[in-house]
Design a protein around this nucleic acid. Sequence first.
DNA 1: AAAATATTTAATCATTTGATTAAAAAATTT
DNA 2: AAATTTTTTAATCAAATGATTAAATATTTT
Lengths: 209, 209
Amino acid sequence: MSVSESKKKDTSTEEKIKSAAKTVFYNKGFAATRTRDIAEEAGLNLALLNYYFRSKAKLFEIIMSETFVGFISGMKVILNDEGTSLEEKVKIIAERYIDFIIKEPEIPTFILTEIRNNPDGLLKRLPIREIVNESVFIKQFQEAVEKKEISEPNPLHFLMNLLGLVVFPFIAKPIIMGSRNLETEQFNNLILERKKKIPIWIKAMFTAV
Amino acid sequence: MSVSESKKKDTSTEEKIKSAAKTVFYNKGFAATRTRDIAEEAGLNLALLNYYFRSKAKLFEIIMSETFVGFISGMKVILNDEGTSLEEKVKIIAERYIDFIIKEPEIPTFILTEIRNNPDGLLKRLPIREIVNESVFIKQFQEAVEKKEISEPNPLHFLMNLLGLVVFPFIAKPIIMGSRNLETEQFNNLILERKKKIPIWIKAMFTAV
DNA sequence: AAAATATTTAATCATTTGATTAAAAAATTT
DNA sequence: AAATTTTTTAATCAAATGATTAAATATTTT
């Protein structure tokens, strides 16, 4: 494939629609999104949407799948790395996910609200159960509990706290920004501080005294 | 007002509509809710909705206001109590909010998603700025920082972490329940454990060594 | 270049959905 | 009990919205 071909594909109509759909779906959710919003965002005729993707639902399905896979699949790899300690895993998750979400800050709210509207359908696709039940992380956690290095026996609390610390500020972003009249840059700086702080906080929370 | 009158009012058509609207709006959000869903949930004719509340938007407005006030106003009182220490405030917030949300678990997601869809309009109504900038809590926090009892100088991190630990599990509820095939009761037990744990975690995170 | 195929557009359809209306029924007042 | 007011219902409207179609344009293949 030539350079011009690949460039052409990047900005092809199909890609334009997908990109516009992402933007609109992320910000408004499925129900509040009009197909006309997507067409307008893409600068294209409405009929192209159905020409390329057959229906709003199908298009959404594609966006959602890609988003979920992009968000969660990395997690599985990190949590199954035999070469990193528990502490290192926390560090890597905090850093990578904060960087990832800063680039696409609407994703957490998007995922959580769309799962609310269709829990069964979407959850089947995500390897959450494997992560929580069979991962290297879980083994390491249980070992640490046995060695009394960790005071909390339930790994679910550990994961909830870690993900909560990482993700919650993005979900509450409008409230946080409104509470102190922050601009996006200030908000992002606040969040970036947390890349270093979260691993320290988690360590303080869970290491047995 | 007689007993029968008050009982009648509790189950009056207007109350039935409000109650049904709460249920449907909480679970699906404004955009995904059809006025017909509300009428059906209430077991009433669709036209009654407009007869009593004039429009879907007006009805939503009422539900939302009541929900927001109920959720946040208590917080302001707790954080402005001169008679409780920082540590006690954390304990009270964790306990009260977990009890509150267990009764209406959809509220956090409802609030956060509806704020996303209309940040300016709704945030004006909430006394977030006063809480974060002028509360007794803030004074106590700053004193503790000066006395080097607390290592983290920014109260926003403290509040984000506290609220994140309390609220995030409810937002991620479908994922958490799906991850281990939990029933609602098991999920609630997991959450109830956190009433005691969160104050301990917060203390561990923030007390200077 | 001609033919065939793929893409795009404008117009239109059918359904959904928020809202209204006029009449019926119920409750309240006189 | 009659008159009046309030509440409820069934039918319908109008706008929004997802989707389709047929024709026009562009691209690719022969």
